[in-house]
Structures are given as structure tokens and as C-alpha cells.
Amino acid sequence: MVNNTPAGDSAGIKLGLTLLTAASLNAFAAPEPEAIEHWRASDESNTATIDHSAWQNILDRYLDDNHPSKVNLFDYASVSQADQKILGNYLDTLQNIDPRSYSKAVQKAYWINFYNALTVQVILDNYPVESITKTGEGIFSFGPWDDELAVVDGKDLTLNDIEHGILRPIWNDNRIHYAVNCASISCPNLAGDAYTAQNTEFLLETSAKAYVNHERGVRFDDGELTVSSIYHWYAVDFGGEDASLIEHLKHYASPKLKQQLNNYSGGINHDYDWNLNQK
């Protein structure tokens, strides 16, 4: 598991792959294909952008993106009622937009910010909570991913819909996994900058490099390779084979890590720390 967890009581929450229940695996299941087609449309002639300044203000006030652990931590306990209202108004604004009338670049940033802001709202609505896995509407829920949290263009949406029914299949970009944040220590960092059409490529590349080169993403334990369970849950996005995953990791790895990966021929272990990314 991740060493030197910066926040929270890890007892009973750090869950390795072998401890995942059927309910937890369902949290990452893709929705039916019908959920995808509605969102494929775009207007590439539209040069307008979407204002994410409210989300940026929330990030500026409550996200520590310079923590010594190199895990970005969110100060959920300090979010004022006024700022919770600002976050709610921002999410309302996003829900009143039909993203299909914008360019694909604007849409990509819209959906990433939407996902991350919704996740923060889930934690705030349930706070104090030790892990996002302790939230969710169903009795046997493993987190909120299948809860209907928003309505866009008349369509009820869950976090799973946004990630698996929109972002992953439409953009076919495995770096999406470095952008959407599940409010957990082992998740790739919640970015300190709101995504925009202009900065998305830079943020995706920066986030991928940061995660691959952090111990919660990739590490060697006594000569054995351990990677985040993200690479297991979404193996298909990384080529579906150990060799293709290692090639992906090498692309972002530091010279030292890349050499270790080049020389490695063993199996790959997975784990994940579901503790809240709390400051």
C-alpha cells in the first residue's frame, strides 16, 4: 500500500485488489452503449468557451497541490457554506448547458471538470466521511458512481455515465484516468487548474507523468512491480496486456524508473488506497 499516507485512518480502508467485492467491481462497470451515442455530437464551428472560473476559485481556496507527499489534498472540512453554494451554482450552470453545441475540445474540459466538481460535492454532502467508498445511495453501494447526480439535456447522469459512457468511449484517451479524480489517496491528483480547451493536453501529460512517477502509481517492492489498480480495472485502455502497460508506463517514467521497467520480466501486482484525499 501507499507509504506515509498523508491523511486519515487507514485501518480497514486500504483495499488491495484481492479485497475488492463484487459491488466494488460494479462501480467501474461501463453503462449500456445507448448512453454513449447522445453525446457524440459537437459543433466544431463554435469558438465559444465555457466559464470554469467558479471551479477554479474553489480549487484555489481548498486544494493543496504542493503537499510534500506529492498527493494533492483537499480541505473538505474548511469549505464554507458560501463556497458550497458557489460550487452548487457552478454545477447548476453546467447542467443548464448542452455541451454538444460546443467543440470537442471544450466538451472534454467540460466533462472532466464536471466529474471532479461532482465528486467534491459528494464528499461535502457526506462529510465527515473517511472514504468515498462509504457513500452511495444503495444499501450495498460501494461509492456513489451509480447514483444519478446530475441532469444534462434532459438526461440523468451518474459519474459512471460521464467517465465510461462519455469521456472514455468518445475521446478514446487513456490519459482520462489521470484527470478524473475519485477523492482517494491512490487516485491521480485532482488538478490545481480547471481544465480548459487550451490547457487540457498540457494537464493530461503533466498528470500522467506525475502519477507514473509516484509510488501510488508505480513502484518496485523487493524487486517486484506493483502498480495502481487503475491499470487492472481499465486494462483494456492500456493495451490489455502487461507488455503494453509497461510500454505506456515507460513513456512517462523517469530515467531510473524506465530502466527498472526495461529490465523487468516478472508479474505485476496491484493495490489501491481508498482513504480520503483530505488535507
Rank of each mutant, 00 (worst) to 15 (best):
A7R: 09
D83C: 03
Y76E: 07
A48F: 05
D43A: 08
S78C: 06
D83E: 07
G8A: 14
R100K: 11
P31T: 02
P6L: 14
N89V: 03
V71N: 09
A22V: 12
L19F: 12
K70Q: 07
G8L: 10
T21Y: 04
P33E: 08
L63N: 07
E34N: 06
G16T: 14
Q81L: 14
N57D: 10
N4M: 01
N57L: 13
A23Q: 14
W39C: 13
Q56T: 03
S42Y: 04
D65I: 01
F74H: 11
A22Q: 13
S53L: 06
D60V: 11
R61C: 13
D83T: 13
S24R: 07
Q56H: 12
Q81C: 03
H38M: 09
S42E: 07
N72Y: 07
L73R: 14
H38K: 11
L63C: 14
D43N: 15
R100I: 15
V71L: 13
N96F: 00
A82E: 02
T93S: 12
N26C: 03
L73W: 14
S53I: 04
A54C: 04
N26K: 09
N26R: 12
D92Q: 12
L63K: 02
V71W: 04
I50F: 07
A23S: 15
N57P: 02
S42G: 06
N4S: 13
T5M: 04
G12Y: 08
V79K: 05
S80R: 02
I86L: 14
Y90W: 00
N26F: 10
I86K: 05
S103R: 01
H67M: 11
F28W: 07
L63R: 03
T21G: 15
D43Q: 05
V71C: 07
G88S: 04
A30N: 14
R100P: 00
N96G: 03
K85M: 09
I86G: 00
Y62A: 13
A7Y: 15
D43I: 10
A7S: 15
L15K: 02
K70T: 02
P31E: 08
I13A: 03
N4A: 09
G16N: 11
P6I: 11
P68Q: 10
F74K: 06
L19M: 14
E32M: 08
A11Y: 05
A11G: 04
G88V: 00
W39D: 08
L87H: 03
A30D: 13
H38R: 12
A29Q: 10
N66W: 07
S24K: 08
D92P: 00
R61D: 10
N66D: 15
N66Y: 12
G12H: 12
P33K: 13
L91G: 11
A35Y: 02
S42F: 09
K85A: 11
T18R: 15
W55R: 04
Y90E: 09
S24W: 01
G12D: 08
S10Q: 15
A41Q: 08
Y62D: 13
A54T: 06
Y90Q: 09
L94T: 00
L73C: 12
S69R: 04
L20G: 06
Y76H: 04
